[in-house]
Design a protein around this nucleic acid. Sequence first.
DNA 1: AAAAAAT
Length: 499
Amino acid sequence: MGFSDLGLSPDLLRAIEDAGYTTPTPIQEQAIPQVLMGRDVLGVAQTGTGKTAGFTLPMIEILGKGRAKARMPRSLILEPTRELAAQVAENFEKYGKYQKLNMALLIGGVSFADQEKKIDRGVDVLIATPGRLLDHFGRGKILLQDVKILVIDEADRMLDMGFIPDIERIVGVLPKIRRTLFFSATMAPEIRKLADKFLMNPKEISVAKQASTADTVAQHLVVVGSKAKREALRSLIRSENVKNAFIFCNRKRDIGTLQKSLVQHGFSAVALHGDMTQPARTETLAKFKNNEVSLLVCSDVAARGLDIQAVSHVFNFDVPSNAEDYVHRIGRTGRAGMTGRAYTIATPEDAKYVAAIENLIGKPIPRITPDDVDAEELDMSDVGGKRRRGGRSKGKPEAKTDEPKKTASAEKPAAKKAAKDKPVSEKSTREKPAREKSARTEPRPEAPRHEPIRDRRDEPKRERDRRYSRDDEPVEVTAGFGDDVPAFLLRTVKLKKSA
DNA sequence: AAAAAAT
């Protein structure tokens, strides 16, 4: 099955070919003919499935016929974040280059004037975040009664962000007769209700299991004391062949600090979060996309949908407290059939969030310790994967490694660990350079607290738990498994979807 | 508990 079988015109096929695509993804294969037939579509699709082209391609096809009147856009696409809106706009440019489609990007943080000028000239496609669209609408700058195609993208996120009232207002002024395409990564009951409200007899298309993590991403979890997170991150970055990486923080205020600290340690890093000015956001993202910088320290503004080619790693500097965000974050890597690696840095206090994530993805995330990074690779090498430190080649090693096997080995982390534990600790004490330790020798009151991350496998688990426990409350310890307690037994908190 | 989005 090729793009030419989907009913797209030659101009469009040529643009697709220029972009280097030959085969439609499953969602494209299913959605494009439906949209062309004029059917409403309810798409349940993870990011990275080619969803965006799944609606932009047929829209270009349809909009190629006919012309927009001034201030009366013919189609409307709603996106939750400015970056996503911009990304969709780029998609229209890429695929619409042989057609003369007028397009306007209505997002906040930039001047109204340019946007108004475009609207006045007449646009075929309006791509917007809800706030700015309503602003234009409220000022009477835009008329929505000629919108024939409505796309609501990332509906689950729109819901999370409280956009639904805005969306309802907007949909309320659109013509009742239109086609609507509604996409969501998940199909929670509230989302289903919304879909029922906005769609008419939709064709349901589902291409990914709900909340599944791409099996092209090798996941790992590193547990350290909260004071040692930055050090653990640096150590991970150094020991991995990081081409480029997203580094996610939970709080905006931590992002700048972490980014500066990374730069101080000689890394090439920029920051991205929603409190930055829009020009700064655009610039920082462009630098990352062009590989001018390799590390993007960011908030969840970048967690969903951002499609950046060949991202080799995702680091969660903080464990996301919303389990679904974990899936979205690590989905920034391992895209389009390539493989990627995701490392989550957790503190013992994050246990309940980790448990919720593991429950959601249906499998434990293999634990490593900072010193284990080499060992992990060693462990991987016997299933045909990763090179050792120093022995790795430049380029894109992730593209070819045999990830499914890695995932398979991850199913039984306890057994694996038991097998390798002894030699590993010997090896790591021998080989680990003094570098990381001496980097932070300034006296601190809790110095002994972060020293032990290094050797914690060598002490009794009970001791570890006590040290890492908050206050002095008694700690529950599961006995009888030595150091290798199955992850499910360590889940002390019953998982509940966050309120 | 936090981030995002209109100013």
